[in-house]
């Protein structure tokens, strides 16, 4: 992905200059998202075995990442907001992995 010119050298943890994202970036992201949507539908019709859901999810994650970073401006935001997004992701993963620890091993030793 293109990294527009707005990299700030040193970022304060909580405060940062407000950054205006322009239509160029939005258009670029918009078209990338549309292409990815087409791609994910197209790939779904090809038999790749276990890779099908993996690829579908990878594309979805990529798309979601683009939306978060550019449409939602996290790429240009303070570290606090980046941390907030990361903590949301982390808690979701805690929910998934800790619950799965039960589901994966529930039948161990029982057959």
């Amino acid at each position: 992905m293109s990294h527009p010119e707005s990299q700030h050298g040193s970022m304060d943890l909580e405060h940062q200059e407000h950054h205006v994202v322009g239509p160029k970036v939005y258009l670029l992201i918009f078209f990338t998202l549309l292409v990815c949507t087409g791609l994910t539908t197209w790939v779904a019709f090809i038999d790749l075995g276990v890779l099908n859901p993996v690829i579908a999810l990878a594309i979805a994650c990529f798309k979601a990442g683009l939306v978060v970073l550019f449409f939602m401006h996290i790429h240009y935001s303070s570290k606090l907001l980046k941390l907030t997004v990361a903590s949301g992701l982390f808690m979701f993963l805690v929910l998934i992995t800790m619950t799965l620890s039960d589901y994966i091993s529930r039948a161990w030793g029982l057959w």
Binding site: M98, S101, D102, Y103, I104, S105, R106, A107, W108, G109
Partner: peptide
């Protein structure tokens, strides 16, 4: 949280 569920039939390993 699973310590509320030890007797509910969860996996022993996970418990």
């Amino acid at each position: 949280w699973e310590h509320h569920m030890f007797i509910m039939g969860v996996s022993n390993y996970s418990a």
